[in-house]
């Protein structure tokens, strides 16, 4: 299963990658501007993304993803320190399957969540 991590904090992204790599095929995109080319070339099964991504926030990107055939159905898992401020009902139309809190998540729960979502979409 291929997981694309979209996270602009390099050390956090590298750490997530290390947690996931034994079970998944993982790639990291640090720059939201490069997300679409990464998604087009690599075709991930799940996108694991932070909300605040430099000049572009994830919601702008999610909106744009809906306009392209190849990214419209990509399942998204949000991983954010502001998870409690995001309502699932507000983002369900963007194919967001789960909202996880960065301050509480453990590697095991993250792996289980991604596995479940990835399997559900295939």
């Amino acid at each position: 299963m291929k997981i694309l991590i979209l996270e602009d904090d390099k050390w956090f992204a590298d750490s997530l990658c290390a947690n996931l790599q034994p079970k998944f095929d993982v790639r990291v995109c640090y720059d939201p501007e490069k997300f679409f080319s990464a998604a087009e070339k690599w075709r991930p099964d799940v996108l694991l993304a932070d909300v605040i991504l430099g000049a572009k926030n994830l919601f702008v990107l999610l909106n744009e993803m809906q306009s392209y055939a190849d990214t419209r159905t990509l399942p998204v898992v949000i991983l954010s320190t502001a998870a409690e401020q995001i309502k699932a009902s507000d983002v369900v139309e963007y194919n967001v399957k789960k909202i996880l809190n960065k301050t509480e998540i453990t590697p095991r729960i993250l792996r289980e969540t991604l596995l479940k979502i990835g399997e559900g979409s295939s």
Partner: peptide, 27 residues
């Protein structure tokens, strides 16, 4: 303070799962 604390937490979780000495030293 939330951002660096979250990062420290994440790195410590990674440390607990890492066996390689060089990788542990970098974390």
């Amino acid at each position: 303070l939330k951002t660096p604390l979250t990062l420290v937490r994440q790195l410590s979780l990674q440390l607990a799962e890492t066996k390689d000495d060089a990788a542990r030293a970098e974390i």
